[in-house]
């Protein structure tokens, strides 16, 4: 359902906004021809891309592609793009789905790796800050956290590249993407900087959220009970305090991860990682509707998935929301 709404909205924005600005089908098509194209060629392109059809028909074609697949003329012959087919890019003429699948591992590696880093660092910093409220550590980490949420990633990204790669030579050339399956070490070495930079942005929020949650939880009656039982402090904090704090953290995590899997736009651009986010930027810059649709749908799928998983986890963590 959500996917349906998302796809219609994307479609409508793409077609209605330029129409409202007074662009004709040919004007639209003129974006997808070479720089020497004449009116005749532009007109033909508009027909080929189906821009003259009513919006509903164009949308129908898109939906048909997903459920039945589409045929296209690639020159020497006709080719069938089997369902689920997200169509062909207006600009590069490449099929969209393989492009996305090709880029998915990169975004997955980036997002999941960063998620691990930011959860570990964010949550533990938050816990420590909460336990030592008012201490130097608390103030320092909360200050850094504030910097983390407010510094843009293209800034922290370029700066960290300059320091860790160019000056210190500690990490590899990020742009040389190597799949995990090929060489896990190089994979990690190349990704560590994007992970940390991206995680820095998020860890900050998690540290703050965890700290606030921990402060609240640690004053709960059941924490007092845990202590009264004679539990060592570490267990009180981790088993009783942290567990209860994790619920809001998980909610945020689900949202963040879902969005990120739809493309870590800035990070991928900054570090030249050819993932979904970079793809999305190019798609939008080029007004490439099939690519934009593909990216939006991927993002929507991931957001839905992530939320589903969070809901399930919720039930695991908090027995009160378990289905009866």
């Amino acid at each position: 359902m959500l996917l349906f709404v998302v796809s219609i909205a994307t479609f409508a924005i793409f077609f209605l906004v330029p129409r409202l600005a007074g662009m004709s089908a040919d004007d639209l098509a003129s974006r997808y021809v070479g720089k020497a194209a004449n009116d005749q060629m532009i007109h033909e392109a508009a027909i080929r891309l189906g821009f003259n059809d009513p919006l509903v028909v164009q949308y129908g074609r898109f939906v048909k592609g997903i459920f039945v697949g589409v045929d296209r003329n690639y020159g020497p012959g006709i080719e069938h793009c089997p369902a689920p087919c997200l169509g062909y890019s207006y600009v590069t003429q490449n099929p969209v789905l393989p492009d996305l699948l090709d880029r998915l591992p990169i975004t997955l590696s980036l997002a999941l790796g960063a998620a691990v880093v930011w959860v570990v660092f964010g949550v533990s910093t938050g816990v420590l800050s909460a336990l030592r409220r008012g201490s130097f550590f608390d103030r320092l980490s909360m200050g850094v956290a504030l910097a983390g949420v407010s510094l843009p990633i293209f800034f922290t990204g370029i700066v960290s590249l300059a320091i860790f790669r160019d000056q210190l030579g500690l990490v590899g050339d990020v742009a040389d993407w190597v799949p995990f399956s090929e060489d896990p070490l190089t994979w990690a070495n190349n990704l560590i900087l994007p992970w940390v930079t991206l995680a820095f942005l998020y860890a900050a929020g998690y540290a703050r959220l965890t700290r606030a949650g921990m402060l609240e939880t640690m004053s709960e009656d059941y924490i007092r009970t845990a202590r009264a039982k004679g539990l060592p402090e570490r267990m009180v904090v981790v088993k009783h305090g942290l567990r209860a704090t994790l619920t809001p953290v998980m909610t945020m995590f689900g949202l963040d991860l879902g969005l990120l899997l739809g493309g870590a736009v800035l990070t991928e651009s900054t570090f030249s990682l050819p993932g979904i986010g970079k793809y999305a930027v190019d798609a939008i810059n080029n007004n490439d509707l099939p690519q934009v649709m593909g990216v939006t749908l991927t993002a929507a799928v991931f957001i839905i998935l992530a939320n589903l998983i969070v809901d399930l986890l919720y039930a695991v963590v908090d027995p009160r929301v378990r289905l009866t």
Binding site: G143, V144, L146, A147, T156, V159, A162, I163, Q167
Partner: peptide, 27 residues
Amino acid sequence: IRSTASAVAITAALALVVSACGGGGSA
């Protein structure tokens, strides 16, 4: 006290970043 302290922390962090940039140039 709290806000002053965090202000100091931010300044320190920024100084680190800026000096790192400067370091890049001079190196």
